[in-house]
Simulated scan of single mutants.
Amino acid sequence: MTRPSEDDLIARYFAPLAGEAGLGLRDDAACLSPKPAHDVVVTTDALVESVHFLPGDRPASIARKALGVNVSDLAAKGADPTGFVLSLALPDDWTEDWLADFVRGLAEAAADFSCPLLGGDTVKTHGPLTLSVTALGEVPAGRMVRRTTARIGDAICVTGTIGDSALGLALRLSPDWADDLTPVERRHLADRYLHPQPRHRLAEALRSHATAAMDVSDGLAGDLAKLMRASGASAVVELAQLPLSAAARKAVDLRPALLDTVVTGGDDYEILCTVSPSRLDSLRKEADSIGIPIAVIGQVVSGDDLPAFRLGESERRFHDGSYAHF
């Protein structure tokens, strides 16, 4: 059977996903007009098979993750998504069934995140499946939430729960340690790894109340260190205040060594932010109104040391606090 051409693939699979600015994917570029008095925020992430996802992952899950990790970056900047472009390098053994499932997942994610397709490129590769998403968002002029503006005395907060995705990946790679978890608990951890939940609905509250923010993509300890380094400060975190799901808490209770995985593992895609104590109640109230939990886990302090993570009388600083490509 003859495979469709690139033009056929675009018309059949991707054009139906295009937003108005994508011009039906019939042109060489999209055309966007930002809202008056707004800045454009741009972010990009590449995903490579066997690095960012496993070869057996469902195509729809890969698509959702590819878009979700970028929308998470926008959310941490207080930006509302406006669209994305996709570059997709398909390996030699790709099939139309695989592509159809990928596009189904992409369409669902684009609708859920209010982030339509604007364009992109589809090519063939002799290497592993590789895809890159560039997402665009908008913020009122001058209101992007930066990494560099945390202040000493700010509360350190995270949304949702931490460590589920890292445990979900560990479960995929070596499931023996999870024999004592229930099927429901194992499914929860696996789902958090496969399907990030970007906190895009929190964008407005973050730009109103957060002093600094980023998303937790490479690991809480390492990402917090990046945030503090950019702001010229340090931090103290109380591990007892770390928000854990029931599944993660049970896993750590059964095997305390997994706490390191929780703190340093990546792919949480929760929001890590700093907030003035005077704005904390307002942020919590707005987050509660849209069903996003926020936990206070520590405080910004002076200094240039790595963040200190305290548990009872003990204190640790994680020198390898996150995933690193290099």
Rank of each mutant, 00 (worst) to 15 (best):
A212T: 01
A240P: 08
L167I: 07
K35T: 11
G119D: 11
S282R: 15
A170N: 01
K285D: 15
H126D: 10
D57N: 08
H200V: 14
C157M: 10
G78C: 03
K226S: 05
S5D: 02
G219F: 00
V236N: 08
A63R: 06
L136Q: 10
P175W: 10
E313R: 15
P91Y: 01
T182M: 10
S278Y: 10
G312S: 14
H38P: 08
M228G: 08
F14G: 02
L283H: 04
L171E: 06
L283K: 07
L306W: 09
A213I: 04
T264K: 10
P59W: 03
E138L: 07
I297N: 02
V263A: 03
H188F: 10
H200G: 13
P34V: 11
T264A: 12
D180H: 12
L220H: 10
A30C: 12
A18W: 02
K77M: 13
K124N: 09
T122W: 04
A246K: 00
T159E: 00
D267Y: 05
P116Q: 00
A63H: 05
T182Y: 12
A324Y: 13
L173K: 06
T274P: 12
R255L: 14
C157Y: 14
L224W: 09
I294L: 15
A21H: 07
C115Q: 09
V184C: 01
T95E: 10
C157Q: 04
V216W: 00
L86F: 00
R207H: 15
S234A: 06
S289P: 07
H52F: 01
V252I: 14
A170W: 00
F309H: 08
T95H: 09
A89N: 02
L106A: 07
D57R: 06
A212G: 02
D223W: 14
G291L: 01
P198D: 00
T43E: 08
A60N: 08
A76T: 12
G153M: 03
C273T: 08
T182F: 07
S289C: 03
T43R: 09
H52E: 00
L202K: 13
T134V: 09
A190F: 11
M144S: 05
G312Y: 08
F102N: 00
R146P: 05
L181P: 02
V145D: 04
A15W: 06
G56K: 06
C115H: 11
T2F: 11
A79H: 10
K35R: 15
H52S: 02
T261G: 06
R279F: 06
I10S: 12
R143Y: 07
A75V: 03
G119I: 13
K77H: 13
D281Y: 12
A210W: 11
T159M: 00
H126R: 13
L239V: 10
A240S: 09
A324F: 12
A295S: 11
G142H: 01
E313N: 11
H38F: 07
V85E: 09
D180M: 07
L169T: 03
R147C: 06
R199K: 11
